[in-house]
C-alpha cells in the first residue's frame, strides 16, 4: 500500500516535469520553436528542452528517419534514463508519410523503439504538439506510458528489427508480438 502511494507521488512529479530531447530529423523541428517560445509557451506545463539525452525524460522524434538516422535514434534512446517516453511526431513516424515507398526510410517507428504517443499530421500544428504532451501526462498519471518497460521485455524483437533495418532488409521487419499482460 505504501509502495503504491509512493509510486503515485513519483508519477505526479514526473508528469509535471518532462524534460525533452528533440531529435531534429526532417521538417518537424520547424514546429518546435513556436511551441517553446512566447506564443505557445510549453514551459508552463513544466516541459523544458534539455541539451543531452542523459538528462531527458521525453524523446521527440520529429519527422522521417533514414536508416542512418535510425542508428543515432536508437543510440540516443538507449542513453536516456528510465522512465523514458517517446513521442512520434508527424505522419512520417507512423507510416512513412510521403516517404512511404522510399528504399532507405523506415516506415513505422514503433517497430524499432516503443512509442508512447503519436501525433498525426503533416505538419502537426503547435496546438497538436501541446495536446500530445497533455495526453502523455494523462497516460503517465494512469500508469499507461510503459514503453520503456516494453523495450526491456521485448528487447530481442526490437534488436532483431533494428538489425534488419541496419542491413537494409526492411521487408523482413516484423511488428512486435506482445503478451496479453502488460503491468506498469
Amino acid at each position: 500500500m505504501k509502495h503504491e502511494e509512493w509510486k503515485k507521488i513519483s508519477r505526479i512529479m514526473s508528469k509535471r516535469s518532462l524534460w525533452m530531447v528533440h531529435f531534429c530529423t526532417g521538417c518537424g523541428a520547424m514546429e518546435m520553436p513556436p511551441v517553446m517560445t512566447s506564443r505557445y509557451d510549453m514551459e508552463r506545463f513544466g516541459i523544458f528542452a534539455m541539451a543531452t539525452p542523459r538528462q531527458a525524460d521525453v524523446f521527440l522524434v520529429t519527422g522521417y528517419l533514414a536508416v542512418k538516422t535510425l542508428k543515432r535514434v536508437v543510440q540516443v534512446y538507449e542513453q536516456m534514463r528510465d522512465p523514458k517516453y517517446v513521442i512520434g511526431f508527424g505522419s512520417c513516424t507512423i507510416n512513412g508519410g510521403m516517404y512511404w515507398d522510399s528504399y532507405n526510410t523506415i516506415k513505422d517507428l514503433s517497430k524499432y523503439i516503443p512509442v508512447d504517443v503519436y501525433i498525426a499530421g503533416c505538419m502537426p500544428r503547435p496546438e497538436a504538439i501541446i495536446d500530445s504532451f497533455l495526453k502523455l501526462m494523462d497516460m503517465i498519471d494512469k500508469g499507461e506510458a510503459i514503453g520503456w518497460q516494453k523495450y526491456r521485455k521485448y528487447y530481442d524483437q526490437y534488436k532483431r528489427n533494428q538489425k534488419m533495418a541496419f542491413e537494409y532488409r526492411l521487408d523482413e521487419v516484423k511488428p512486435i508480438k506482445e503478451d496479453d499482460k502488460n503491468e506498469s
Binding site: R16, S17, T37, G46, R81
Partner: peptide, 28 residues
C-alpha cells in the same frame, strides 16, 4: 518567463524537478 512575455512554470517547479530526478529508475 514574464520578461519574455510568457506564462512560465509554477514557482514550485524547482521542487518538482528535483524530486522527479531523485525518482528516476536507472542511474548510469
Amino acid at each position: 518567463a514574464r520578461i519574455q512575455n510568457r506564462v512560465g512554470p509554477p514557482v514550485y517547479q524547482g521542487f518538482i524537478d528535483v524530486f522527479k530526478l531523485f525518482g528516476k529508475k536507472t542511474n548510469i
